[in-house]
Nucleic acid binder design. Structure first.
Length: 731
DNA sequence: GAAAGGAGATTTTTT
DNA sequence: ATCTCCTTTC
């Protein structure tokens, strides 16, 4: 790729602090990779002395692959970010973890610590609240978790938090925070915030800091606008000796302030490095003029932004199409139709929305139009219940002190170890300061347990020992996992607990997990387990998105930040959704919503569709949201509007029809008035008839009894509906 | 100890 | 409407 002058300047600036102010689609990744290449090839800088951090695994991997290619390293051979021929290129968290792996022992942790995700943290907090006899209603664990996390991100220890306590709620937070940290340590576990804080703590030691300063003499930080204060401080410490720090800054794409990303870090940077070379990358190589100019006009309304203009030499392109649909179903249908009409490969299409809840409707219509699609985000792979279960097994085998994982699986599959038994164990655990495993070892000594419970627990302990033994003897982690799944009868358990469709989906996920584990084939089983657990805690779903197959991609705007596509749809652009209802009235938050709109718009390379619905079914009722204020900020010259009335007038929810046929309440009555009447001739239907349904498309009647029909659809199972009034037609 | 019923929430989530 | 988590009931 040919770099423009500005980009080349950035590439050449190596022994000096550098601030790259980049805009969407301005080729910053190309610039960064070229810069690294220049360092290694032309300046003889050892890759080992270069540190490159960013926020997502995906971005890190992409950059790594590009650099590998430029350095003529076969990227298929790169197995970890520790490849000696390449710089350390990873996420902030993966870098912090590598520091912790070396030095955490000085903080009274063991090297085999595990990482708790947010769900783990919340359940630990719940446990603490229960022990302290606080009502969860009064002190919601999630809220407390947020408070603690906020404190941690301001680098406040529990004791330092004291000075900010100004309410009885915060008193509780302080007490829970104290206990929470203690328990984490007991479990030899860190939460996501700890990863930063502990690293910060460790680097307070001058000799350790010096080691890292000498090791990483060149530092690059991508997405600097999303750093929080702790990240800023750590980077500052590391770079303070050689001052070869390059950061990439894009304030218009800062959409994570609610995760404590602090845009003021740019001011800090300018204060710390007044001599820094500042380079602005304003030329956009991605989108058409219409899209770029429209996005510019929108973002201009933010007071809190450097006034600069993104420009492009790309062609004019097509106008942005604004779609106003009568309701959310028609909106979804229109999107599906346009994708078909456009006739572009599916993979050229990206559908964006503000909230995850919006995806389902769109999915239904994509299914209906036989359009393959993939939803990215939402429920993450590693958040899936079956994966979490299996990971919990692996975690307790790795770190026997991990009580959260232990609790998760001690009765999964069901082993008749109930809540009461666990309570006794907890009491015992607290009184004698033992780990679960230590108690299990001498289960006979626990007096308050019933005989049956003791047997169950003893059996579980035997199982644990056996798994542990196999872990030592089996040659690979993958083989061990397969053995383990069989040994604990996990698949049988799933089969018993879930419907066939759910079972199949879960088995697929398990196979995928095994697949992931086979990447560790070349390491011995136990070290492989350690490495896997470290890495897996920091992995996200997005890492799985491949572009090999042809499908439409659906995701929230937040998730889309690193993507671009030819055709982009932004759905539900209404006041109340984008900007979100909770942000209206707060200037700063509203500006962040506007940046979201900007991010969404600039994902489009060629054609942008912005849609809204006059009426939408949300939270069990019909809502009317006005047109988003952001739409009005787009000048008319860039837009054309499609406005249409209901094409499918009988589009109502299945459950609505179902309610209607059973017991109409006053609420449903109101909806009846709005609905056109359907009166099918029952006599015309018979068993095995194929039906079309606006929501579920093709159905087959499997049973018919008067007006009540049982109808089968391959993915949805059996549904019963009143065929006289249901919105169905024979095909 | 497990199923059924009820209450509450439903913004975004790189790690 | 629907999902999740918690409590009640068998």
């Amino acid at each position: 790729m040919n770099l423009n002058e500005r980009q080349q300047e950035a590439v050449k600036c190596i022994e000096w602090p550098l601030l790259i102010i980049a805009w969407a689609g301005s080729g910053k990744t190309a610039t960064l990779t070229a810069r690294v290449e220049n360092m290694i090839k032309n300046h003889g800088i050892s890759p080992q002395n270069i540190l490159c951090v960013t926020f997502t695994n995906k971005a890190a991997r992409e950059m790594k692959e590009r650099i590998a290619k430029n350095l003529w390293i076969d990227s298929t051979q790169i197995r970890s970010f520790k490849d000696y021929r390449l710089p350390f290129m990873g996420t902030f968290h993966s870098f912090w973890v590598s520091v912790l792996k070396e030095y955490i022992e000085i903080l009274d942790y063991k090297k085999d610590f595990i990482i708790y995700d947010t769900a783990d943290s919340v359940s630990l907090i719940k446990q603490i609240l229960r022990e302290m006899k606080f009502e969860e209603k009064e002190f919601p664990p999630r809220k407390i978790q947020t408070y603690i996390s906020t404190a941690k991100n301001s680098l406040l220890t529990p004791s330092q938090y004291e000075q900010y306590v100004d309410s009885s709620f915060k008193e509780v937070v302080r007490d829970v925070y104290h206990k929470y940290q203690k328990k984490l340590q007991e479990n030899n576990a860190l939460d996501f915030d700890d990863i930063l804080i502990k690293t910060h703590n460790i680097l307070q030691k001058p000799e350790i800091l010096a080691t890292y300063q000498e090791r990483y003499t060149y530092i690059m930080v991508d997405e600097y606008q999303d750093t929080n204060i702790t990240q800023y401080e750590i980077i500052k410490m590391l770079a303070s000796k050689y001052r070869n720090l390059a950061v990439v800054w894009d304030d218009w794409q800062s959409i994570y302030s609610w995760r404590w990303a602090d845009m003021r870090n740019i001011l800090n940077f300018k204060k710390d490095y007044p001599e820094a070379l500042v380079i602005k990358l304003e030329q956009n190589y991605r989108s058409t003029k219409h899209i770029i100019n429209a996005a510019n006009e929108v973002i201009k309304n933010n007071k809190n932004a450097l006034s600069k203009t993104l420009w492009t030499e790309n062609c004019e392109g097509e106008c942005i199409t604004l779609i106003e649909a009568p309701d959310d179903r028609n909106e979804a249908k229109k999107i599906a139709e346009i994708i078909v009409e456009q006739g572009r490969p599916y993979s050229k299409n990206l559908v964006l929305y503000r909230t995850n809840g919006q995806s389902r409707q769109i999915e239904e219509y994509l299914i209906g139009a036989w359009i393959p699609y993939k939803v990215v985000g939402g429920l993450k792979f590693y958040d899936r219940m079956e994966i979490k279960d299996l990971l919990a097994y692996l975690k307790i085998l790795y770190n026997s002190q991990d009580s959260i994982s232990m609790k998760r699986i001690i009765n999964v599959p069901v082993r008749k170890i109930g809540a009461r038994s666990l309570e006794v164990l907890d009491e015992y655990k607290n009184n004698y300061d033992l780990s679960y495993l230590q108690i299990l070892e001498n289960i006979e000594d626990v007096e308050d347990l019933k005989w049956a419970a003791k047997i169950s627990l003893a059996n579980f302990y035997t199982l644990y020992r056996e798994l542990r033994k196999k872990l030592n003897s089996l040659p690979s982690l993958r083989e061990f996992a397969e053995y383990m799944i069989q040994k604990i009868w996990y698949k049988d358990y799933l089969k018993w607990e879930y419907s066939e469709a759910e079972y199949d989906a879960k088995i697929e996920n398990i196979d995928e997990l095994i697949n992931v584990l086979s990447a560790y084939e070349w390491i011995e089983t136990i070290p492989a387990l350690g490495q896997f657990i470290d890495e897996v805690s920091l992995l996200t779903d997005m890492d799985q998105l491949s572009e090999e197959n042809d499908f439409v991609t659906l995701m929230t705007i937040h998730t889309s930040k690193w993507l671009e596509r030819e055709n982009v749809f932004i759905a539900g652009v209404e006041d109340g959704i984008l900007p979100h209802i909770r942000t209206i009235g707060n200037q700063e938050e509203l500006e962040e919503e506007r940046r979201l709109m900007y991010v969404a718009m600039t994902r489009a390379k060629e054609k942008l569709y912005i849609s809204r619905a006059k009426e939408r079914f949300q939270f069990g009722e019909y809502m009317r949201n006005p047109k988003s204020r952001f739409i009005d900020e787009i000048p008319l010259v860039h837009t054309q509007e499609i406005w249409f009335t209901s094409e499918v007038s009988f589009f109502w929810d299945l459950n609505f029809w179902w309610n209607l046929s059973s017991s109409p309440s006053s609420e449903t009555f109101q909806k009846v008035i709005k609905t056109p009447k359907i009166d099918n001739d029952i006599a015309s239907f018979s068993i095995w008839d194929r039906l079309s349904h606006p929501k579920f498309w093709i159905w087959i009647i499997t049973d018919l009894n008067g007006e009540l029909a049982e109808i089968a659809f391959n993915n949805w199972g059996l549904k019963k509906m009143n065929i006289r009034i249901a919105p169905v037609k024979k095909v």
